[in-house]
Design a protein around this nucleic acid. Structure first.
Lengths: 228, 228
DNA sequence: GCAAAAGTGTTTGATATACACCCATGC
DNA sequence: GCATGGGTGTATATCAAACACTTTTGC
């Protein structure tokens, strides 16, 4: 195990980046995964879009750093935050070994309602996650990896509601699953699956204003803690 | 995203460590998970046992670094190597923030046959993974996390045979599962599970020298690639 | 009443588990 | 023959998927 500082000059720079995901309605009205990117203002990859992030401060934990990045670039708070992977290939910085950066990447989910209030600017824009331009570094790969993790994790854990407001209908929750997984789900079976999982409970209220039978509203049950 | 070097002096040191796991027969003859640890020869935690590892070289990939550590401390080659997690709490180095180290930790599996040839010395010793002394840094936690990952991953992937020699009987493979999961499995059902998974194929040979019906020998089917 | 989505019921097939039983070898 | 694990067969329970059907609202 490495000892105190001494040889830090020979060790690559350490950064923390975050793949931020939310769901937004697209032109045809269905939900689609979107992610904010920042434009690089210096070499390497100057002018290209990249994941938000920055060097790790000595007095900051990894997840705290990811959280700060999220707030700084989008003005939003994460509803869910988890470490994704550490990317550190020698050649990922596009040539110069002196530019080598090891990135510890987190992924975060943001509620669709909050995401509407997100900051956009010349240098911060949201993109559809499945239709990205060529990004800086290996960031296209990283986002693909994050999407894979999300699709996998939504199947066995209770993260889907993090995209929604505190109360939601089961149809809305199903829309989240369908958008993430990219296929339609049987409403009846979905209802049973969710109810038997114990991840939601009825609020006792119904959503009014639809042009059909008013659906019940649910909220996520409080879970003890997240897995690391 | 971080740019070239500049502020590296303010960023914590980066190290790569490896949780190396193998199976060894214990006193009662059944297989048990074992891991090699190295004794620290300087502060912090001088004299305590710790995961093998070291600072990341600028010209070395993360997995390569983990692989080198494995070879240097045990003389062995990994049969399986995967990134586990990046640990970087501000307080994990036991006080001095100047000593802060962010560790990208890998986990590796080593064949039981090869592990017999492993180097041991005054400063490198093997321990039972479920009966460890108090280790340096947060390394007890890290090993627990690695064991959890192994127990989870053995259920849905094909890593179990990495503990064994190239050909093995299904009873041997079952022993691996039982040792990792800590419970007995039905031999008949286990056989069907493994056969239907397509992860093994018959070699056409049988293991002789048992005092009962000679069991068939199998080998792992060649899989395209590992998931990152 | 009609349309549309909410919500329930029922059938079917796949899969995991428990456990009975036969097989092939050494002694 | 007998003991011992190798290996097979089979019944049962559990769960996911498909899909028909009923309910409740707006218009």
């Amino acid at each position: 195990m490495s000892q105190a500082k001494a040889s830090f000059a020979e060790t690559p720079t350490l950064a923390v980046s975050t793949v931020i995901l939310t769901l937004r309605p697209n032109d045809s009205g269905s939900l689609q995964l979107a992610t904010p990117l920042v434009r690089r203002i210096r070499a390497p990859f100057e002018g290209q879009w990249a994941l938000p992030g920055g060097p790790l401060n000595t007095n900051e934990d990894l997840a705290t750093s990811a959280s700060h990045t999220l707030r700084d670039t989008t003005g939003l708070e994460p509803r869910y935050l988890e470490q994704l992977y550490a990317f550190g290939s020698v050649d990922r910085s596009g040539g110069h070994i002196a530019d080598r950066v090891v990135s510890i990447v987190y992924w975060a989910l943001v509620g669709a309602d909050e995401a509407e209030r997100a900051i956009e600017s010349q240098n911060v824009q949201w993109f559809w996650a499945d239709d990205l331009p060529a990004l800086a570094f290996d960031h296209n790969e990283i986002i693909q990896y994050a999407l894979g993790r999300l699709r996998n994790k939504i199947e066995y854990s209770r993260i889907a509601h993090e995209f929604l407001s505190p109360t939601f209908t089961l149809a809305q929750l199903r829309e989240v699953y369908e958008a993430v997984l990219g296929r339609e789900l049987d409403p009846g079976n979905f209802r049973r699956m969710v109810e038997s999982s114990g991840s939601v409970e009825e609020t006792g209220e119904r959503l009014a204003g639809t042009r059909h039978r008013p659906p019940k509203l649910y909220r996520a049950t409080t879970t003890a803690g997240e897995t690391k």
